[in-house]
Amino acid sequence: MLSLKDIHTFYGHSHILQGVELYVQEGECVALLGRNGAGKTTTIHTIAGLTPAKKGNVHFNGKEISKLSPHHISKEHLALVPQGKRVFQSLTIKENLIMPSRPSKHKKEGLKYWTIDEVYELFPVLKKYEQNMGNELSGGQQQMLAIGRALVTNPVFVLMDEPSEGLAPVIIDQITDIINDLKKTGLSILVVEQNLKLACDVADRVLVMNKGIIVWEGAPDALLQNKEVLQKYLGV
């Protein structure tokens, strides 16, 4: 469904992604792990069109999207839950959901159709505070809102960048459950994480990134048993 071939991305002159190759199949949840500065966010942003690759291809649903602008990529039903949540501070919760909400035009059968009410059903706490401004929410609530905001665009694929960052352990468990629930609705997911447990609890397959390339790939169990990779690339 999504595949990256020989992706090279730069910030100015610094060569950040140095030939990234990865794929995510339909209905699959893939976790991308790596240390600070490994290039995970850059990978996500390259897919979403925010930092386009200088070289290489991104194929999504049989279409080459590496040259498209972010809004066109979003219209291909690929949604972003960014690092740091980036909820709109001067909009209420409700407005944060109304703003991007759009009917689904994709023809994928069986995929859940997300309205604002469905998001409220998934996250009742958002309904409760729907008139509060984005900057009046706790970190966990902001993460829920960031996920809800992506869902109301009715994507077939979601990119999540460190959804557990800065959250308390109980909330991380909650986010883990939510990602697993979303998987069951048929969504395909690429989730970037530093939290090994969350990644292994949700992912069908795990990728490890170091210095702008994918250095290891395998099942979550295999990763948890591979002391060398854990130590060398993830510092555990």
């Binding site: 925010l50 602008s69 001067s90």
Partner: peptide, 24 residues
Amino acid sequence: THVGMIVRAGVDDMEMVGALGFNI
């Protein structure tokens, strides 16, 4: 208005407005 909402969101974070499907 919806457009007003988009503009307010844009003042906060224009890049995110683009990533949500609006032509900035």
